[in-house]
Design a protein around this nucleic acid. Structure first.
Length: 947
RNA sequence: GGGCGGUUAGCUCAGCUGGUCAGAGCGCCUGCCUUACAAGCAGGAGGUCGCAGGUUCGAGCCCUGCACUGCCCACCA
């Protein structure tokens, strides 16, 4: 039985005070009063945990989403909240569609980022990780994580994310670490992981290698220095090179020129004396050198530049490293030993100048790489690292990681793709990158992370890579083995998550129950900033390892089933109100928790949803949130109104059975117009919202539900329903009960429509509607309204006419200066048959404050009139008209009509238009032309009458 | 050096396959404390859809060029 609102019936153990006494619903909605309570209720009740269905259980296919794991170091920022809001809306929607829905949460150990933070803390304590030693440091990070790690998870609970908390993971959990190790060993065994000395991007502050992706390039105004290298054996002859980094000349082992460059032909085979160092170095010929850049002669520093390294390999040149891991000059730099790289640059230039070896100095814009994490200028450095060979097949003719990842997005003959991107253009970006991918440097010289499971032998110097910690060298059985000190790139482990969270590697080689039920995941919602870092890696690794896991029936897995997700939705960026990227340094970061406190979670979620048009960045504007707080308040007050009437009804002995709720509102054919109309509207808007959500058109879905609730439900239906809720003595109780039932049905449906967007408020009101005795534990566990378009077109069009009449009368009243409260008679001249007015007099009278309606054949002249194609209407009121204002209005209206008419007529007299345009369009134009002619006549007449 | 977006009302943005698409919210103006809601109700004003061409019977919507703006990728020293 539906009763009036009694908050005490909604109780959680945490808030016993709510048990006390019956309370009136406050006039204004206060989110703070309910949100924590529901957040706790959802999490504490484990409402969104999903038990893995048994294989072959015949359940509907699951909707599975892997949450991009935030860093343990993280706090919830607006970007997260946006991503989570979008995901949660989709997840709630899918769940309400009846699919088993799993959203898997977790956190990422985030190697570099976390280590940096803890190191910073150590610094403030006057110590360092080196002082602590590796083991103690790692222990310290774990402690740190215990202490600070859960902040973002708590925030997720607070904003209502319906994740499956039973599946929460941390990327360094034992089982995941085990899986990472298995993946590494397997790739090593397949020959796809190798170790070698190459030029990598090195961050001198973090003192680790970083991948290409972790380098952010920045254009900078720099210099191009020319340095003259003396040619040995040719008195006073020099070969002039150009460089942006003169300090590296100390490590030069050659100078390269293009073999076709005539200017240097006579120098082929000659040698040079390296200034400041004195080393003799050769001139080599290499086609890579562009003759038209700089001087056409390039100094070759194999240990400090990737191109030079490549040249050195081609010409078998030695590499001389002149810097250490902190970017200070080393002993090889001789007199410059110990200097910072920029100090060394200064000194080298001074010394060259002094010796007359410095040539021209030109301005030059170049892109310098900075560490993504700490913004230190990256140093290309020759060092021994581990790599994943992404373009290599494990067996002759087999796929490579990259080739699988490319195949994953290629459509088949029917246009179907195993993996689809939304917005679609991200696919091109992805493919472009994947087609040009280099081997992936996966080793990091950090302490926090998955340590590489490789052991170096002190005797034979070979490598032992093993699933279990070895006690001896696998090659020479020496006990003198030492584990590799490097750890793995964080993205290596997070790249494996789609398989590892579901229990990969399976012990028996068959898919685990989780993999069977949830792999491939249905959707990934993430930002483009980690498209390559993470999305691409998951596709590579996921495809790679899942190709070996058969389907449950034992057959081999097709491409469709090895991809880690079927769809990727790339969301936009949240910027500040001035479209600036939010950043701590700019100080324009909007703290979502702060906003949530002020406006309520639902209002913030709704703001984000309403602006989430795929592919467009959103400028977070608090004014919008203010508007949606008002919307929440509107819903709250509609509920107040409804509950008030439920209470009144009960006092009058009218009750609505709760069993009548929960379905789509329906109205009998002979029911009052507004009832048939609102039922039809609910149906059509539900259909539209479902369609919008299916295409990630969050903004459209949000706007639809907003317009429906505020515009249709509140502004029109609620106002009219007041007429029907007659609880007086002699009233028709059956009719009142019918009206009340539909009101409650519609409201209940609206709450369900709204609930993915505004989970807190709708949960509260939904429970209240059922008087604390709801048919499910949560509105989130009910079914989403499906609806049907065109369920009652007649009701919709009739109601539209009624609205037009009412709006016309209201406007006329305004023009005439009728007092707000005064009821006045109106005259209607119908122009089409069967206008829905006489049957709906009460509605017209109430909503337009009309005292009586006269239907006439002609309207008296000289009075303001509103003309529509279907009817003309006048307000019978004697007060003086503001002639000037009225003429102004009519003149504008006339101009508008005439312009449209001219346009219309031009087309209608155009033979080609008539011949080529579809009949529907032509027909529409004709009809409109007739209307316009009529409207223009009427308007002209009205203008004349004004005199 | 490549590639990709954006430019629509004062502000923030919608506008899906070219034919009621010129819209919403906020702001603004004018009335209303009409007992669900002043975080409200009602009625308004406001845009030659960046510029210039082109395709088409018809273009914010397609093509070309330009301007401004933002982003991503890139081993020319």
């Amino acid at each position: 039985m539906v009763k009036s609102y009694m908050p005490q019936s909604i109780h959680t153990d945490s808030e016993p005070e709510m048990m006390a006494g019956r309370r009136e619903l406050p006039k204004a909605y206060d989110p703070a009063a309910i949100e924590d309570r529901w957040a706790q209720y959802w999490v504490g009740g484990r409402l969104f945990d999903v038990v893995t269905p048994a294989p072959g259980s015949g359940q509907a296919p699951a909707f599975t989403v892997l949450l991009p794991p935030p860093n343990v170091t993280g706090n919830l920022h607006m970007g997260h909240m946006f991503e989570h809001t979008e995901t949660d809306i989709l997840v709630r929607w899918r769940r309400m569609l009846g699919q088993p829905t799993v959203w898997v949460p977790g956190t990422d150990h985030a190697g570099i980022a976390t280590q940096m933070l803890v190191e910073r803390q150590l610094t403030s304590e006057g110590t360092s990780r080196q002082e602590l030693g590796r083991e103690a440091f790692v222990q310290r990070v774990w402690e740190w994580r215990e202490h600070y790690g859960g902040a973002i998870l708590a925030s997720m609970k607070r904003i209502g994310d319906t994740v499956d908390w039973s599946r929460e993971y941390f990327t360094m959990d034992e089982n995941l670490s085990h899986a990472v190790r298995e993946a590494f060993v397997r790739l090593y065994e397949q020959g796809l992981i190798y170790r070698g000395a190459y030029i990598v991007n090195w961050c001198p502050r973090c003192q680790t290698a970083i991948s290409d992706l972790e380098v952010a390039h920045e254009e900078q105004q720099g210099k191009l220095w020319e340095i003259r290298y003396p040619v040995i054996g040719s008195e006073n002859e020099f070969l002039t090179v150009a460089t942006t980094r003169p300090e590296t000349m100390l490590g030069d082992t050659a100078v390269a020129v293009n073999p076709l460059d005539e200017r240097y032909r006579h120098l082929h085979g000659k040698r040079l004396r390296l200034p400041l160092v004195g080393r003799e170095i050769p001139i080599v010929l290499d086609e890579w050198v562009k003759s038209d850049f700089g001087t056409g002669a390039v100094k070759v520093t194999p240990a400090h530049d990737p191109n030079d390294f490549a040249i050195a390999q081609r010409h078998h040149l030695p590499a001389v490293a002149v810097m250490d891991e902190t970017a200070h000059m080393n002993a090889e730099a001789g007199q410059y030993h110990g200097l910072d790289r920029y100090e060394a640059r200064k000194r080298v230039l001074e010394d060259l100048e002094a010796q007359g070896l410095l040539g021209a100095v030109r301005d030059h814009v170049n892109a310098i790489g900075k560490c993504d994490r700490c913004k230190t200028v990256v140093e290309p450095r020759l060092s021994t690292q581990w790599f994943v060979a992404v373009n290599k097949a494990a067996r002759e003719g087999g796929p490579t990681m990259a080739s699988l990842a490319i195949a994953a997005v290629v459509p088949d003959a029917t246009g179907h793709k195993p993996l689809r991107f939304t917005p679609e253009n991200n696919e091109k970006i992805y493919l472009e990158w994947m087609n040009n991918i280099y081997d992936w440097c996966i080793s990091r010289q950090l302490w926090w992370g998955h340590r590489i499971p490789a052991w170096h032998c002190g005797e034979c110097h070979k490598m032992t890579v093993a699933r279990q910690d070895p006690t001896e060298c696998a090659h020479c059985h020496s006990k003198d083995i030492r584990q590799e000190t490097d750890v793995l790139d964080t993205w290596f482990s997070s790249g494996l998550l789609p398989v590892t969270v579901f229990g990969w590697p399976p012990a028996d080689g068959k898919p685990t129950a989780d993999l069977t039920a949830f792999y491939p995941t249905s959707l990934l919602v993430t930002g483009f900033d980690i498209l390559f870092f993470w999305v691409a890696r998951m596709i590579m690794l996921g495809c790679w390892f899942m190709q070996d896991i058969p389907l449950p029936d034992g057959t081999s897995r097709p491409l469709d089933e090895i991809v880690p997700f079927r769809e990727v939705y790339i969301h936009a960026l949240v910027r500040d109100a001035d479209r600036q990227k939010m950043s701590k340094t700019k100080g324009n970061v909007i703290d979502p928790v702060e906003i949530v406190k002020r406006y309520g979670t639902d209002a913030v979620r709704f703001t984000l949803a309403s602006m989430a048009s795929p592919g467009t960045d959103i400028a977070f504007n608090e004014a919008r949130t203010e508007g949606y707080r008002a919307f929440a308040n509107k819903i709250w007050n509609a509920a107040r109104f409804i509950f008030m009437n439920v209470e009144r009804a009960r006092e009058a002995g009218i009750e609505v059975d709760a069993a009548d709720l929960g379905a789509m509102p329906t109205a009998a054919d002979d029911a009052p117009l507004e009832m048939r109309w609102i039922a039809a509207r609910t149906n059509s808007v539900a259909a539209e919202i479902n369609a919008a959500l299916g295409e990630y058109r969050f903004h459209e879905a949000a706007n639809l539900v907003y317009q429906f609730f505020w515009g249709d439900f509140c502004d029109w239906y609620l106002e009219i329903v007041k007429l029907r809720l007659d609880f007086s003595e002699g009233a028709n109780k059956a009719a009142t009960r019918t009206a009340l039932t539909l009101l409650l049905q519609t409201f209940e449906s609206a709450l369900r429509l709204l609930s993915p967007f505004m989970p807190f408020l709708t949960e509260e009101l939904w429970h209240a509607l059922y008087d604390g005795n709801p048919p499910a534990k949560s509105i989130a566990l009910t079914r989403y309204p499906q609806g049907a378009a065109h369920s009652d077109d007649a009701a919709e069009s009739d109601f539209a006419l009624l609205q037009e009449l009412i709006v016309s009368v209201r406007a006329l009243r305004k023009d005439l200066g009728v007092e707000e409260k005064a009821a006045v008679p109106i005259r209607i001249k119908p122009l089409t048959p069967a206008l829905p007015f006489t049957q709906n007099l009460e509605i017209i009278q109430r909503l337009a404050r009309v005292s009586g309606v006269d239907t006439v054949d002609s309207l008296p002249d000289g009075k303001p009139v509103r003309a529509t194609p279907q009817f003309d209407v006048q307000v019978a009121y004697e007060k003086q008209v503001d002639v000037a204002a009225e003429r102004d209005r009519l003149t504008k209206e006339l101009a508008r009509y005439e312009k449209e008419q001219a346009n219309n007529n031009r087309q209608l007299s155009d033979e080609t238009f008539l011949g080529k345009a579809p009949a529907v369009v032509v027909e529409g134009r004709r009809r409109r032309a007739a209307e316009l002619t009529m409207l223009i006549e009427k308007t002209q007449k009205a203008l004349e009458d004004l005199r």
